[in-house]
Design a protein around this nucleic acid. Sequence first.
RNA 1: GGAAGGAUGGCAGAGCGGUUGAAUGCAACGGUCUUGAAAACCGUCGAGUCGCAAGGCUCCGUGAGUUCGAAUCUCACUCCUUCCGCCA
Length: 430
Amino acid sequence: MLDLKTVRERPEWVEARLKTRSGHYDLTTFYALEAEKRELQAKTEKLQARRNEISRAVGRMKANKEDAAELLTEMATLGPLLKETEGALRTKEEDLQSELARLPNLPAEEVPIGPNESGNVVLRSWPEGFKQTTPATWTPLNHWDVGERLGILDFASAAETVGARFTFFRGAGARLIRALTAFMLDLHTLEHGYEEILPPFLTNKESLFGTGQLPKFEEDLFCLRDEPFYLIPTAEVPLTNMVRGQIIDESRLPIKLTAWTACFRREAGAAGRDTRGLIRQHQFDKVELVWITRPEESMEALESLTSHAETVLKRLELPYRTVALCTGDMGFASAKTYDLEVWLPGQGCYREISSCSNTLDFQARRMKARLRRTETKVVEPVHTLNGSGVAVGRALVAVLENYQQADGSVVIPDALRPYLGGISLLKPTM
RNA sequence: GGAAGGAUGGCAGAGCGGUUGAAUGCAACGGUCUUGAAAACCGUCGAGUCGCAAGGCUCCGUGAGUUCGAAUCUCACUCCUUCCGCCA
């Protein structure tokens, strides 16, 4: 949620910033609503003040056994009028709020301006001097071919029992998912200082509003038929909402949380895209990183958080690059986003494996998550950040494609071996 | 699922329908005292919103109702606690 004051006081700046995003945002109805609302508010409060005055006077007169008939007559007309005005104000406020809630965050000043992903800027690649070459003597396979030959990915069974965009991981495949998850959680908790959380995989409307998935992106979510719950599309939702409604002592910040969860997405707008393989599933595992910070430290925190996600890929020795998303490609709540894209030799391209965002106070305002300054006692919104550290399914894709050998076998990355009970090589079964 | 109780400020915990935005305690902050600290004492101490300001208005789980006036009365809902049943 944008700060109402900023939107009101710097309209041309806000509009210019919004214009750099994809989609167009017209603020004229917003400003009209805002003006009407303030007028109504002034009127309502004047009436309320009078009502309070009268009831105080009536109380005093009754105590003194005086006659309050005249005041009661005034209330007879003022009462209904007030009720009507209050109702109108309330409606207007709701309209205004829902206008405001539909506006995305303003991109930070340093974010490159661009219309879509073509405007993104590659900041760095790892390892340095990495060449996107493929072996001369053999052609790397797609991960789904690698996985099926190893007997660890079973798409057919999933299609049968559930439908498209689901997978059964079998044997070493299931174990690899578990190993990747444990490796990432250990890294973040033991070396990067995060608290591990195991949150609920269901959430409610309020939390989804807090992080910005609702009201605009309902069609991306799975919801239950008989209960008012949604399946989480990312652990960002429960983790960030842990501080919802709270006033946190400045001394307790930053709060750094990590969690493994399954994530559930409708992928409603992605029909026909990435239909094969693990890249775009309705359910996938992800290790998430969330920071709750003081405003002045959030941009630095974004660099740390991103480096923590990068460390996962470095330890797994997976080539990747770090990309600054441009204004046209950023998510709704984000003010600044870095994507990590991992190299997939089987497909000959880089694919997103992590997305790290600073939402500044955008989610905090929606959640009413605030901090209290130690010195001044002033209360102000916290800043929230989130990032994947990293997507587990896509990490498996990257391992399968990068570690495959000419004979169809897959070498287990060193970092994962402690989690795989000594397995160091997966051999094809067919 | 059944029964009972509860929901008030950072926490604890009062609150005859009318200066109660809310006693009291703790915590916190400022000060006095002290070489320093502790203790003691004095003071400050909820959030939001409108306004240049003075000041006004809103908020005691949520919504509706009764009333001139509701934290306080009525109804519905939500959540929490305890007991019973069921259950991974």
